[in-house]
Write a protein that binds this DNA or RNA. Structure first.
Length: 341
DNA sequence: AAATCAGACAACCGCAAGCAG
DNA sequence: GCTGCTTGCGGTTGTCTGATT
């Protein structure tokens, strides 16, 4: 249809975000809440397109995002879920509330894929049929391609089939999680990440989002100076100083979300979300809808839940709550498996 | 010390769904 | 039902960094 790009290319800045831009964006969102991205560039003066703003917020500035190394448990879950759901990173990310789809995708592409390729090097032939149906995924979401594992099935799969397929996927994901949990039952609580893991080894700004916390002392009232050590690296590549947009000299104490704390570092996150904007977020992701507890947050926020409850506890609870329905789902999935696999 | 290479990951692009008018 | 806008998603690219030569 020739839809114009989300933003005109002229005067739109691209490339890595600077601390200044982050502060402007965060400041704006703190006052207005995420959403209405179209108006963000014009309202903030950022020379970024709305898409870029949304992405920056979603992947890096949003509270509750855990950065740094993936734990073994997370790795297992990703592998299981990827095997079952294919490259539906958003769906996979919904099972890892503290990780973004982009993060998971990158981790998969740079680490796990190679790892599995090595492991499966010799056994590929026997796995060609059945087990690795996800390898045929291209675009799984929505419409005709939703959940398709082969082009031919995409064309012929009816909506009913798709819905059953989706349920099957969900069920299988649950099974995978059960397996993952049972594989390493002792570590059912995620192993504590040493703080050093939270700040990556990279000295680039973008990898050190906690720097924003340092730049926003007023917002981090309850934060300790924990971010200072790692944040020193920010000085390397980005220059900054008095950088806050005059429009947003400092966040007002009674702004849209005074309790909003930014989780650049795990120990900076506070779980006040139930009283703030995020508790009102709806959730449209299919896979998220199966987990009411997590779905509350996952639209715009994936708050750090470690402090209140280990992430896997959510999964466990979900698994156990749903246990009563599993046999039905299993029957259904078996019935339909001939069509799908 | 400089050049080159490879890995990691942040960011961009295009497509498609959802929604409002 | 149609159209245009906004948002979400996944694939891909670009950039940065550390390791190696």
């Amino acid at each position: 249809m020739g839809r114009p790009p989300c933003c005109d290319k002229i005067g739109v800045k691209k490339g890595p975000w600077t601390p200044e831009e982050d502060i402007i964006l965060v400041s704006y969102i703190q006052q207005n809440g995420p959403g209405n991205w179209r108006s963000v560039p014009s309202n903030t003066g950022l020379l970024r397109c709305s898409k870029s703003c949304r992405l920056r917020w979603t992947n890096y500035l949003r509270p509750g995002i855990k950065r740094g190394n993936f734990t073994e448990q997370e790795e297992k879950m990703i592998i299981h879920l990827q095997a079952l759901l294919g490259n539906r990173w958003a769906a996979i990310a919904s099972y890892l509330p503290q990780r973004t789809d982009n993060d998971i995708k990158n981790y998969w592409n740079t680490h796990l894929k190679k790892k599995l390729e090595k492991q499966n090097g010799d056994s590929d032939q026997e796995n060609d049929h059945g087990h690795h149906h996800h390898h045929h995924n291209h675009r799984h979401r929505h419409g005709s391609s939703k959940g398709c594992h082969s082009p031919s099935s995409c064309e012929t799969m009816s909506k009913g089939q798709w819905e059953r397929r989706l349920q099957t996927d969900i069920h299988m994901a649950k099974q995978a999680l059960c397996e993952a949990l049972s594989i390493d039952n002792k570590s059912i609580n995620l192993p504590d990440l040493p703080p050093s893991n939270q700040s990556t080894t990279s000295s680039s700004y973008a990898s050190s989002a906690e720097n924003i916390a340092r730049l926003l002392p007023n917002w981090m009232n309850s934060s300790k100076k924990s971010s200072q050590t790692s944040s020193e690296s920010v000085e390397t590549t980005q220059t900054r100083s008095s950088l806050i947009n005059p429009k947003f000299p400092s966040p007002p104490s009674e702004s849209y979300d005074n309790s909003l704390q930014f989780g650049y570092n795990n120990n900076l996150v506070h779980n006040n979300h139930k009283n703030n904007y995020y508790s009102n977020c709806s959730n449209s992701d299919v896979s998220q809808s199966v987990s009411p507890e997590t779905s509350v947050y996952q639209d715009e926020s994936k708050p750090n839940m470690e402090e209140q409850m280990p992430p896997l506890s959510y999964l466990e609870k979900w698994l156990f709550d749903e246990a009563a329905t599993q046999s039905d789902l299993m029957n259904m999935s078996l019935e339909g498996s001939g069509d799908f696999f």
